[in-house]
Design a protein around this nucleic acid. Sequence first.
RNA 1: GGAGGGUUGGCCGAGCGGUUGAAGGCGACAGUCUUGAAAACUGUAGUAGGGGAAACCUUACCGGGGGUUCGAAUCCCUCACCCUCCGCCA
Length: 423
Amino acid sequence: MLDIKFIREFPDLVRDAIAKKHLTVNLDELLALDSSIATKKRETEDFQAEANRVAKEIPKASPETRPELIQRGKDAKASLTTLEPELRELEAQLKTLMFQVPQIPWDGAPVGADETSNLETLKVGSPRVFDFVPLDHVALLEKNRWAETERVARIAGTRSYSLRGDLALLEMSVLRFAVDFMVQRGFELITVPSYAREEAFYAHGQFPSARDQVFAVEGEDRFLAGTAEVLLNSLHSGELLEETDLPKLYVSISPCFRAEAGAAGKDTRGLTRVHQFNKVEQYVLAPADKNKSDELFETMLGNSRAILEALELPYRLLETSTGDMGTGKYRMVDVESWVVSEGRYRETHSCSALHDWQARRANLRYRDSSGKPRFCFTLNNTALATPRILVMLLENHQNADGTVNIPAVLQPYMNKKVLEPSK
RNA sequence: GGAGGGUUGGCCGAGCGGUUGAAGGCGACAGUCUUGAAAACUGUAGUAGGGGAAACCUUACCGGGGGUUCGAAUCCCUCACCCUCCGCCA
């Protein structure tokens, strides 16, 4: 959500952002609604003032003048009973539109409709040259009996995964490694539920636009979160934090649920795209300072890069285009890691800065040094997500005999150097 | 699931139909005192809108939403959350 005052003052900037992000938001309607609300509000407030005035006089009034005053109060109220619902209706309409207005993307973002306009900015490490024919991760799973794909699919449906033996342990190890890594970098570990009320999804920005990506709990106002960010973003809703509390650096780990609507036929095999996965998430609540936000963005991106480097995986950075970054975002950099079997990089991390767009929705405020309440800036980034990262770990670190080497940083968690087949 | 009690400003807490945007305390800020700090004393200060050059005027907000009334923090309905007891349970 943007500040309505900002939209009034710079409608062209907003119009430009809508175009760059390839959205269809009726800004003219929004502005028209805004001005008719102003008019109606003034009218309503006049009657409210009259009603207040009368109500104040009545206790002091003589018995003779009282009936007349009460009648005036009744008249004012009668006008209000028609005006107030009209005003409420207009405000509801405005709110609907306000929820759709995007954050202004930064100047450096490539302008384009979708991911084809994303710009590769850095490549780290180079894809391994094999002296044998490498297997894809699904073949490695089968060969080593590390998964229970078919049986579990019968019970839970498609896009479900289940790991066995050393690979199940590796999943826990790599998650724990990522948590430890983030804690070492000064982030506080906080665990959160994987579900939340509708309100939190609006605050996060996923609702209303991407509602179809979210699983709903039947008969309840509860939805399964696709990321811990949904919960973290509402953690301080309604509070008035002190500037000295900021930035708040959180790392969280949670099961994440995604409906994957519209992805039918995509990545149907293996561990790349599943309905439930685990994610270690970085989330930062920052003061409303663009430079500070930029700085934190680099820090968070650096964390993800360091994790991938520790896992000895080649990766690249993509500066996400305006059409691909998402409505609320100021800037997004995707981190993609090398998938041997596909001969390409696939997204494993996504680093975003939203400035105050989310904070306005979630009502995240702090008192700045001058004592004035301000909306915070928010940022988030993946630290690590399984099982997708296992695809990269298996394929990149495989041996000719089908075994898989464990990266040095994970060996202490596994107490071994090579993943062994299950029986 | 059943039965009660609660939710008030940055925090704690009083108020339970009209003069309460809300006592009192803490914390914050400014000043007096002090070499400085503390203590003490004095003063300032809610949030979000609208109008105005300004002084200032005005509207809404006492968990969310709705209602009763000329008038609601106070009464009613509803939802959410918290606490206590009972039942069930990892």
